[in-house]
Simulated assay, not measured.
Amino acid sequence: MNNRITSLFNIEFPIIQGGMVWASGYKLASAVSNAGGLGLIGAGSMYPDVLCEHIQKCKKATDKPFGVNVPMLYPDLDEIMNIIIEEEVKIVFTSAGNPKTWTPKLKENGITVVHVVSSLKFAKKAEDAGVDAIVAEGFEAGGHNGRDETTTLTLIPLVSKSINIPVIAAGGIATGEAMLAAMVLGADGVQVGSRFVASNEASSHINFKNEVVSAIEGDTQLTLKELAPVRLLKNKFYEEVLLAYGNGSDIEQLKTLLGRGRAKLGMFEGDLDNGELEIGQVSALINDIQPAAEIVKNMMQEFNEAKKRVASL
């Protein structure tokens, strides 16, 4: 397939693996890139030295393009960005911050910059900041999310009709059929997170992967909007959050309840009771753990079969 996204990243298929915390190390990123998509290392759960190690290992594991996802609320952001530049990473996805802060510097160093947004307003701001493409993420997505709860089905046509740079759809996409639907709505490619959590190469704990596979409709909920909206699997910790709301807890009390390291505890260490289990609504459609290459292959097969079905209507 040849379109604006495959050309921008020099990849075979317009499938981007989300740079998810505690799931997206070099093994997953290189596997997706080797399969023809674009793999992303998730810097959000890595100290600078750990990120540097993953970048170097990814270079050895693939000769295909890969990138790094950087949440811009990261406390060591300057060091992270300097490592990315020094290691000559060619693609950076930024999120959770102002794209004007780092986009010029990254582009000066020959880096393709993509920014993740959850609204048309911020898509336009990112385009004005000079990014090369947008990830428009609907509120079905797992992890940290937009406050407006705009669905992917609504967000993609809003954004694609209003900006001129390529649009990557995210949120609720785990199949080739969903990929086709997003592209019919105006997306040039898709970013896939939850489906790749349930992959052999994801660095997340097997307990978490199995919980994703066993999830059914209604098992996730967007919560903690007063802090930073996050979609979680319902577990003991989620019930404690629900109880805190029922008791009228204020922001400081919610911060105390959340504490530090909840996502690591649940997603990386496998504590299914006390950890944050960040995953998207589409987990209800995920029924097995597969190699990343199989996920890419299956999505493209489903995509092509769906195209044929639509053509026959």
Rank of each mutant, 00 (worst) to 15 (best):
T220C: 12
L227I: 15
V190R: 04
T223Q: 02
G218F: 11
E226P: 01
F208G: 06
P229R: 08
Q221P: 00
I206T: 13
Y245A: 06
L224S: 09
L224V: 12
S199C: 09
D219K: 03
D188Q: 12
S249W: 15
D250R: 01
K209Q: 10
A244W: 02
L242H: 12
L185P: 05
F196D: 04
V213T: 12
D188V: 03
E217P: 00
G189Q: 06
L222H: 00
K236R: 08
G248L: 09
Y245F: 11
A187M: 09
V230L: 08
Q191K: 03
N235C: 05
V190I: 14
N200W: 09
G218P: 02
V213K: 07
F237S: 06
N207H: 12
V230H: 04
D219A: 13
E240I: 01
A202S: 15
T223E: 01
H205V: 07
K234E: 05
E201A: 06
G218K: 08
K225H: 12
I206L: 13
E252G: 00
Y238C: 10
E201V: 07
L232R: 00
E201G: 10
F208D: 08
S203K: 04
S249C: 14
N210H: 09
G248H: 05
Q191G: 00
S199R: 06
L222A: 07
K225N: 14
A198G: 03
L243D: 13
R195G: 05
D188F: 03
N210M: 13
N247H: 10
N210V: 03
L243Y: 11
F237M: 14
S214P: 02
D188E: 15
D250S: 13
A198H: 01
G218N: 07
A187G: 09
V192G: 01
F208C: 05
N210I: 05
S199V: 10
S199E: 11
L224F: 06
N235E: 09
D219N: 11
A202G: 11
L224C: 10
N235V: 04
V212R: 00
E239Y: 12
A244E: 07
E211K: 15
Y238I: 12
L185E: 04
E201L: 04
H205K: 14
S199W: 05
D219G: 01
T220G: 13
R231M: 07
L233V: 05
K236G: 00
R195D: 06
Y238L: 11
V230K: 03
A244F: 03
N247G: 00
Q221G: 00
T220Q: 13
S199L: 10
R195T: 04
I206E: 15
E239P: 00
E252R: 08
E211Y: 12
R231A: 07
L185M: 15
G193R: 04
L243Q: 14
S249Q: 07
S204E: 03
E226Y: 01
N210F: 02
G189W: 06
F208Q: 06
L233Q: 05
F208T: 02
S203D: 11
L227Q: 10
L185D: 04
L224H: 01
S203V: 06
G218H: 06
Y238M: 13
